[in-house]
Amino acid sequence: MNPSLFSPEGLAGIIFLILIGVTILGAIIATCTKRLIRSVTGLAVCFVGVAGLYYFLNSPFVAMMELLIYVGAVCVTIAFAIMLAEPDEARLARKISGLSGGLAAICGGAIAFALGYAAVNGTWMAAPAARANDGSLKMIGESLLTRYSMVFELISIVLLVAIIGSMALARGGRREE
C-alpha cells in the first residue's frame, strides 16, 4: 500500500526521506572534507538527522537527548579541541594520498555492505504479540530507577572518573614556571 503524497502518512514519509538524506550528507561531510572544523559541522548535521530517525522510532526523549548531548556537548567540545590543537592543514592535505583513500573507501564500503546484507537477509525473531509497556518517558524513568538502577549509578561513577581524569590528563604537561 502506498499513501498519497499529501496525506499525513505521505508527508511523514517525505520528512523521513529528508532525514535520511540529512544523515548521509552529514556523514559524507564529516568524513570527506579536508578542514577539521567543517567535519565537526558535518558531524552535527549527521546527528540532527539521527535524532530525527529516533523520533520516527517512537522515542522523542532519546531524540532530544541526542540533540542535547551530541550536537550540544560533544560537537562543541571537539570544536574547542580543534581551536586548541589546530593541525597543519597544508601538510594534512598533502598526506591524504589517493590510494589510501581508495582503500579506506573499499574497506568501509565492504563492511557497510556486509552488515546491510546480513540485516536484510537475516531472519529476526517475530515481533512480540504484546508489549510490556508503551516505552514512554514515564516508563523509562521507572526502569532507570528500579531495574537498571545499578547501571545508572555505575554510569554516573564512570562520568565522574572521566571528568576528573580528563582534567588531570589535560593539566599533566603544564610545567610550573
Partner: peptide
Amino acid sequence: AVLFGFGI
C-alpha cells in the same frame, strides 16, 4: 550499517 561504514 551505512553510518558504521562511513565511520570505518
